[in-house]
Design a protein around this nucleic acid. Structure first.
Lengths: 229, 229
DNA sequence: CCCTGAAAATTACCGGAGGTAACTTCGACC
DNA sequence: GGTCGAAGTTACCTCCGGTAATTTTCAGGG
C-alpha cells in the first residue's frame, strides 16, 4: 500500500557517527530486499527453527528487515498465516497428486489424500502449528475455512459426489468436506503432540474412519499396505 | 476463614447503576464474593453477552471483582477456558443422555451424540467460540485434547469398540475418538459462521459421515424421520 | 550545481491484554 | 489499643501487534 507522502524535510542533521546497526533511511544499493516470496521463505525458516509461536518482530528480524517492511510485504499476521497456509496446501496437493493419480479405487484415493496430509504435516511440524494455531483469536475460524476451501474441499466434494450427490442434497458434500478437514486437523494435532502410534498406523486408522465410518463395513480394504513414504 | 456461616448469595451481577467504585481494602461485609462457581457463572454471562473475545478484565468486571480476584479464583485464561469447556461438556452429556439411552441402534446413539453436540453449541454460541478459539495460542492443542478426553472419547470409544476392537488394535478407538471430535468441532464452527443449512440437516449429514463414512453404505438409515423442512 | 520531492528504510511510539507486585483497608486476636 | 493477617483494589510491568514519525538516499528539474 502506498504510504502517505511525508512532507518532512530534514531540518536537523544527525551526527555522522553510526557504527553498528544499519542506519535508517533509504539504502545505498537502491534495490530493496522486500520481495514477498523472500519474506515468506524467511518467515517459514524462522517458524520452522524457532517454533510456531514466533513473533512478527522475530520473523522480520529473521528476514533481515524490520517490521514495517514485513507488514508492507505480507500484511498483518492473519495474512501471513493465510499465505503460509496456502503454501502448505500446495505441498499437500503436490504430495498427494502422484499417489492420487495412481490409485485405482476411490478408497485408495482417499488414503493417498490422508497420507499426503499427514506426511506434509509431519515434515512441516512447526509451520503447521503456526498455521493452525497461530492466527489471531478472532479470525481463526475464517483461517481454517480458507484452508479447507483451498485444500480438500474439491477432492472431498468429488468423493462425496460419488455416492451422495444423487440421493441427497449437494450440501452434503460441503458438510462432509469440512468434516474431513476437521478430522484431519484434529487427529494430526493430537498425533503431533503425543505420537503413540506410527504415521502409517495413523493413516490407516484415519482412512478407515473417513471411508467406512464408525459403524460401517463398506469394502474390505487391502489390509494395510504400507511403504508409502 | 469467615466467622459467621452466613451463606451470602447476593446478586453479584453488574447492574446498570454505577456502583461507585469500591474502595480498596478488605470489604466491610466480611464475606468475600470470590466464589469460584460464581466467578465462572459471571464469566459465562459476560462471554455470552459480549462475545467470545472477552478480555480477562471485562470478565472480572462483569463478575463485580477485579482481575486479581478472578485470577486467584480460577487461574489464568487457559484455566478459565478449561473450566468452561468442562461446563460445556457436561451440558453436552446431559443433553445427549436421555436420547442416548432411548436409542435402540448404535447409529441412533451416534446421532443423539451429534445432535446434542450441535444443539448445545447452538444455544451456547459465544461460549463455544470462547472455548474453542479463546485460549492462548500455545496451548490450544492441549485444551482441545482435554475437551475431547472429557467429552466424546468414552462414547466414541465404546462405539468404535463395537466393530473394531477385535480385529484392530485398541489405538483405533483413540484415533477415532479424536477424529469424531475434530469433525464435530470443525463442522460446527463452519456452521456457526455461515449457516446455510438447518441444524437438522447438519445433524443428518454429520451423522451420516461419521457413521457410514464417505464411501460406505452400511445401513439404510431411516431417511430423516424428523420434519426437515 | 544545488535544491526539492519521492522512495525506502529504521526507530519510536501507541494501545491493549495478560499477569502480578505493591498498597490499602478491615477484622480479629492478644 | 496495637499488631497481624485477610481480602481487594490500584498501579505497574512485559510483551506483542501494528503504525506513525523520522531519517537517509536517489532522481530530476531550475
Amino acid at each position: 500500500m502506498p504510504t502517505a507522502p511525508t512532507k518532512q524535510t530534514a531540518a536537523t542533521v544527525a551526527e555522522p557517527t553510526r557504527p553498528a546497526r544499519r542506519r535508517p533511511g533509504r539504502p545505498q544499493g537502491g534495490r530493496a530486499i522486500a520481495d514477498r516470496s523472500q519474506l515468506l521463505a524467511a518467515a517459514e525458516l524462522v517458524i520452522s527453527t524457532n517454533g510456531p509461536d514466533a513473533t512478527m518482530e522475530a520473523i522480520a528480524s529473521g528476514a533481515g528487515v524490520t517490521k514495517p517492511i514485513l507488514y508492507r510485504g505480507v500484511g498483518d499476521r492473519d495474512a501471513l498465516v493465510a499465505a503460509l497456509a496456502e503454501l502448505l496446501v500446495d505441498r499437500i496437493n503436490t504430495a498427494s497428486s502422484v499417489a492420487y493419480r495412481r490409485a485405482r479405487t476411490p478408497r485408495a484415493r482417499m488414503r493417498s489424500l490422508v497420507a499426503a496430509y499427514i506426511e506434509v504435516v509431519e515434515s512441516n511440524r512447526n509451520l503447521y502449528l503456526f498455521v493452525t494455531a497461530g492466527g489471531s483469536n478472532v479470525d481463526r475460524v475464517g483461517q481454517a475455512m480458507h484452508l479447507a476451501d483451498r485444500s480438500a474441499v474439491p477432492i472431498s466434494a468429488e468423493l462425496a459426489k460419488q455416492r451422495a450427490a444423487t440421493k441427497q442434497s449437494p450440501a452434503v458434500a460441503l458438510t462432509w468436506s469440512y468434516g474431513l478437514i476437521g478430522t484431519l486437523q484434529f487427529v494430526t494435532l493430537w498425533w503431533l503432540r503425543d505420537a503413540t502410534i506410527t504415521a502409517d498406523q495413523l493413516v490407516d486408522h484415519v482412512t478407515e474412519l473417513l471411508w467406512s465410518g464408525v459403524g460401517g463395513t463398506s469394502s474390505p480394504r487391502p489390509a494395510s499396505r504400507k511403504a508409502v513414504t
